[in-house]
Design a protein around this nucleic acid. Structure first.
Length: 459
DNA sequence: TTAGGGTTAG
């Protein structure tokens, strides 16, 4: 029946076999089994993932015209997700507006997707506005919302604050999961607090959470970051002993660890061993190994590998090109770097800030300042120029402190509504609040959630 | 049966 076929479609989409998945849809039609909204949602999501947005939109249209199926909340959430992933946060917001217009209410999924998008785009303020809206609509922030915010804090190297938040969250009834701990572990390693990370690993197990690759990978990555790749391998073996299967990410982490320590031979040895163990090297693996070779000055060997990949479909990307270009630049082999840049453009890979940065630095170093300036302007055209301060943000620092202080105070007094109002005002003025203020606001949201739960129970 | 949080490269 339709469910059986939908399951098949999902399986094919997961493996990236979109053409086959579409053929299954056609087969359904010929058997007079009408593809439903689930069939199309699965196909649309798969298309966005493997074929990009153009194909995704085409299928969305096809769903309405050919299938006569109307988009539901899941369809809209898929759109919001992919806009967010592409960093098109405005389009994502528009998608939510469209969703409302077509009579579908944004749900917890929608909000979490948007919040994640804003966090990834570095727009923490917008993320908080979303959380506020969510609360106003009576939707409770859940463990995914919390994990998203934790991730953002950890990326900002504030693992302590993230941890404090989880302590409070647990007191308020949140059940922390493996993702929570994996995120915190990553955060502590990032903050060079290995001991705390390891303590959390134990705490997680003590609380009855059985680790899988989801939490093993951050631990393994952390050990590699601390220059303890051999210990990381021990953890990988521990994972194997438990009957768990390391994924591509786990293997790439270890390979990167060895390369980082300059042990390229060991990296290749491990790579070869794991390939025999059903590990499928991907674009990450190739880029890691390539950079590893370049770092120890084995540029010619790197070139040999690079040339062997370049003719194959999907074997290289802009990172691969940039790796070669930047090491050529370091060696002062500018002409070859330019050749590669031309080649990448022919192959439809857009040079980005890394490409231009490498070229500009090499040109400056060679005293070719005029050419360097020409590329500088190209760099700014990419819209991802080297970090310069936005002058509009350069307000008097005292107003930052003032707003932060006042918002924190209001939170302490439990006046979250007023705190939010002031927060919105600060956003409009472009004031940057300190991290502590964000913590206080988050804490406020958790408290609000608790009071909502209480009402639920009372009802 | 479909959608959200985490882990990998420059």
């Amino acid at each position: 029946d339709v469910w059986t076929y939908n399951t098949l479609v999902k399986g094919l989409c997961d493996e990236g076999k979109i053409d086959e998945a579409i053929r299954v849809r056609d087969e359904m039609e010929s058997l007079k089994l009408i593809p439903d909204v689930v069939t199309y949602n699965t196909l649309i999501d798969g298309c966005f993932k493997w074929r990009g947005s153009t194909e995704g939109f085409r299928l969305l249209e096809e769903m309405k015209s050919r299938g006569g199926v109307e988009p539901n909340a899941v369809t809209h959430n898929i759109m919001v997700k992919w806009f967010g992933k592409e960093g098109k946060i405005n389009e994502a917001s528009d998608a939510v507006v469209k969703m409302v217009e077509s009579g579908v209410s944004p749900d917890c999924f929608t909000y979490n997707t948007m919040i994640n998008g804003f966090c990834k785009a570095g727009k923490l303020g917008e993320a908080f506005r979303m959380m506020d809206e969510m609360a106003r609509k009576g939707l409770k922030p859940d463990i995914c919302t919390l994990n998203t915010m934790l991730h953002t804090l950890c990326m900002e190297k504030k693992p302590e604050e993230a941890y404090e938040l989880t302590v409070k969250a647990r007191k308020r009834g949140y059940i922390l999961d493996e993702v929570t701990y994996g995120t915190l572990i990553m955060g502590y390693f990032k903050g060079k607090q290995e001991d705390k990370a390891l303590k959390l690993w134990e705490e997680m197990k003590k609380r009855g959470i059985v680790p899988s690759v989801v939490s093993y990978n951050p631990l393994i990555r952390g050990l590699c970051l601390s220059g303890k790749t051999d210990q990381a391998v021990d953890k990988l073996n521990e994972l194997l002993e438990k009957g768990l299967v390391p994924d591509e990410v786990s293997c790439n982490i270890i390979i990167h660890g060895y390369c980082w320590e300059g042990m390229v031979d060991k990296a290749f040895q491990f790579h070869n061993k794991m390939v025999g163990n059903s590990f499928k090297p991907d674009i990450f693996t190739r880029n890691i190994l390539l950079r590893g070779l370049c770092r120890v000055d084995m540029l010619e060997k790197a070139f040999k590998l690079f040339n062997s990949w370049i003719s194959k479909q999907n074997s290289v990307d802009v990172v691969t090109y940039n790796t070669m270009i930047s090491y050529l630049c370091k060696e002062g082999r500018l002409d070859e770097a330019f050749d590669l840049m031309t080649d990448m453009e022919v192959k439809k890979f857009e040079p980005d800030q890394y490409t231009y940065n490498a070229i500009v630095r090499a040109l400056t170093h060679a005293g070719r300042t005029e050419e360097a300036e020409k590329f500088m302007s190209k760099l700014s055209e990419t819209g991802q120029a080297v970090k310069t301060h936005d002058t509009s943000q350069e307000l008097d620092a005292s107003s930052d402190i003032m707003y932060s202080q006042q918002i924190s105070d209001l939170c302490t007094q439990g006046k979250y509504k007023e705190a939010m109002k002031l927060f919105q005002e600060s956003e409009q003025k472009g004031v940057s609040l300190n991290k502590y203020t964000y913590i206080k606001l988050m804490d406020g949201f958790l408290k609000r959630r608790k009071s909502i739960s209480k009402v639920d129970h009372a009802n």
